[in-house]
Amino acid sequence: MSLNFSVLASGSTGNAIYVETDEHSLLIDAGLSGKQMENLFQEIQRDIKNLSGILVTHEHSDHIKGLGILARKYEIPIFANEKTWKAMEREIGEIHLEQKFTFEIGETKSFGSLEVESFGVSHDAAEPMFFVFHHNGKKLALITDTGYVSDRMKGIIRGADVFIFESNHDVEMLRMCRYPWNVKRRILSDVGHVSNEDAALAMADVIGDKTKRIYLAHLSKENNMKELARMSVQQVLEKKGFIVGEQFELYDTDPKKPTPLVAV
């Protein structure tokens, strides 16, 4: 049995990730419209109605835009921590009680042979958290929407076979952009988003012998570019002694197109 995944969409305009085993399939966040989400599932040749559940990282709209619509239409269980449930109630609308489940920070839930471990991150949301997926000795780590990567976070994600890792912005592009200063300060803060360079420095501490793929995720539409993110991350990692392209590969993600469905 394999652990498969696709980054359906990733960026400042909407985020969603699909993970499956032979027994269960999960969606992590639903940050695009219901129609867009349905189209993304068609592209990877999967059916939303077969989902075992939707895991919610936090209540920002680029992570929950289509959540209520999909949950009601397909009667999908939703898993979120207590503070996130309270924070997103108005945005997602009414959800039947039998579809509402709590998944707290530090918990591990089992979906058949798939173990899902949750951990907290540093972001300006009620109680943001991300996930590590364990299956048959394989490990998939998902971490975006954090202002920094602490030693605690590194300890949880370290040595994954695959990382889906935030590489949000280029610091100089952000400083020069037209955003108001308070928005720039928020992004650069400890509860904002990690830059390309900071992401790479964190990666250097967690890449292990089994690591084969790193997906650069949640790129800012205004303050980053795929080529720039990849180049910046690669330069830092190579200075740290890693050989990108031999030890592991760097992959892009896209706000509108899913990555191919592949096995961890």
Rank of each mutant, 00 (worst) to 15 (best):
H134D: 07
E115H: 12
I69C: 13
T108R: 11
P128W: 00
E98N: 13
E82Q: 14
H96R: 14
F133I: 00
A80M: 05
E98C: 10
S113W: 00
K83Q: 14
N136K: 13
E75V: 10
S110F: 12
S61N: 12
E59W: 03
I78S: 03
L67D: 08
P128L: 02
T84A: 07
G66A: 09
K65H: 12
F79P: 04
I64E: 05
F131P: 03
F101I: 00
K65F: 10
W85D: 08
K65R: 15
I78Q: 02
K73V: 05
T57H: 05
F133W: 02
E82I: 08
G112P: 10
S61C: 07
I69G: 07
T84F: 04
W85M: 09
G120A: 15
A87L: 01
N136S: 14
S61Y: 07
L70Q: 03
F101M: 08
S113Y: 02
M88W: 01
H58N: 13
N136G: 15
F111W: 11
P77Y: 10
R90K: 15
Y74N: 05
T108V: 12
F119C: 07
H60N: 13
I105P: 06
Q99D: 10
G68E: 09
F131G: 06
T102V: 10
P128R: 01
V121C: 00
M88D: 06
F130M: 15
H58Q: 09
F103L: 13
F133G: 02
E91C: 07
G68V: 09
R72N: 15
H60R: 15
A125S: 15
S110T: 11
I64S: 07
I69K: 13
H96D: 14
E107G: 08
L70E: 02
E75M: 12
R72L: 05
E117W: 00
R72H: 05
I76H: 01
Q99I: 01
F101H: 15
H63L: 08
I95S: 13
G120C: 06
M129C: 08
V132K: 09
E117Q: 14
L114H: 04
F103K: 02
A80I: 01
L97N: 12
E115V: 00
A80T: 00
L97F: 09
H96F: 08
E104L: 05
E59Q: 11
G66I: 03
T102G: 07
K100D: 05
D124P: 04
L70Y: 00
E117N: 13
H60G: 09
F130I: 03
E91L: 10
K86S: 11
T84N: 15
N136F: 07
I95C: 13
K109E: 02
S122K: 11
L97R: 13
G112L: 07
L97D: 13
F133K: 02
F103I: 01
I95H: 12
L97Y: 09
F101A: 08
